[in-house]
Design a protein around this nucleic acid. Structure first.
Length: 261
DNA sequence: CCCTGCGCAGCTGAATGACA
DNA sequence: TGTCATTCAGCTGCGCAGGG
């Protein structure tokens, strides 16, 4: 790919406007925060990079040097190594795509393309499959060493159920979800939708409300799955959550208006 | 004491131009 | 003709600092 100005790479943009790009970025940041994927400095680097991706939403052709000096000017000094570490992780989780350019045969600047949001658990699960298998193997040996001779026979057939769900997912949510979806990945993914919807409506610090809305939306999803065809359960669930959080927001707004009169 | 996060330094690849 | 410098990104190893 030949290097050039930003207009050359405009068609790489996955977002119609800056607002959509910012929404996707918010969701990514929430996931990153929840899964502790990036460190503080790395998040600074990511945010700084996103600021260079506004002209054509989600596309940036900034040079690392420029980006680092911009950070320095703002008093948030980070090193090149930190930026590179962030980039490696961002690429690994599918947040950023890096396109290398050439200038007169030489290596040119990079083009950083932000990708639309997709839950981090999905991208990570593919990459860490081998790691998980290794962990399972260790677990098996610990629980029942006498069976270690057979470990190679069926080590890839174990399914992780609801008992392996992360601690960050409330038990009440797991208890209800497990009747329909037993897979830990599905439960975690559904909970991540709850967190994202809560965050979007600034309710992330109200765990009771988040759980209430999460449970009622889940019941609605279960009912919908029983009585009609739901094409994408995650999309349906997320839509329900958004509606419920919006209702809650307007309800609070109304009460606030009443009390001021 | 160990782990994690971080910064720094140095090396590599690639084509070309400058200079002894 | 051969050597070195240039430009930019990617990678690695080392050491330091802070927290549990």
């Amino acid at each position: 790919m030949k290097s050039g100005n930003i207009e050359t790479f405009a068609h790489y943009s996955h977002f119609n406007n800056v607002r959509l790009f910012n929404n996707a970025l918010e969701q990514w940041l929430l996931d990153i925060h929840q899964n502790k994927l990036l460190t503080k400095s790395e998040i600074i680097a990511l945010k700084q990079l996103s600021k260079f991706a506004c002209k054509y939403p989600g596309v940036s052709n900034v040079k690392i040097g420029t980006l680092l000096s911009a950070c320095f000017e703002k008093g948030k000094e980070i090193s090149r190594s930190t930026f590179e570490r962030m980039l490696r992780k961002a690429k690994a989780i599918g947040l950023i795509n890096v396109i290398n350019t050439m200038k007169n045969g030489r290596k040119g600047h990079n083009v950083y393309v932000f990708l639309p949001y997709s839950p981090v658990t999905d991208s990570l699960s593919n990459q860490s499959e081998v790691l998980k298998d290794e962990k399972i193997e260790v677990l098996k040996e610990t629980v029942n060493p006498s069976e270690s001779n057979n470990k190679n026979n069926n080590k890839r057939t174990i399914a992780l159920d609801y008992e392996f769900v992360s601690d960050r997912v409330p038990q009440e949510f797991v208890s209800l979800t497990k009747y329909i979806f037993n897979d830990f990945k599905v439960i975690e993914k559904l909970w991540s939708k709850v967190s994202i919807a809560a965050y979007k409506h600034c309710y992330e610090n109200d765990p009771t409300l988040i759980l209430d809305i999460g449970l009622s939306s889940l019941k609605q999803l279960i009912r919908a799955l029983k009585v009609k065809q739901v094409r994408d359960k995650y999309a349906y669930f997320y839509g329900t959550l958004i509606k419920k959080f919006q209702d809650q927001y307007f309800k609070e707004l109304f009460i606030l208006g009443e009390s001021r009169q």
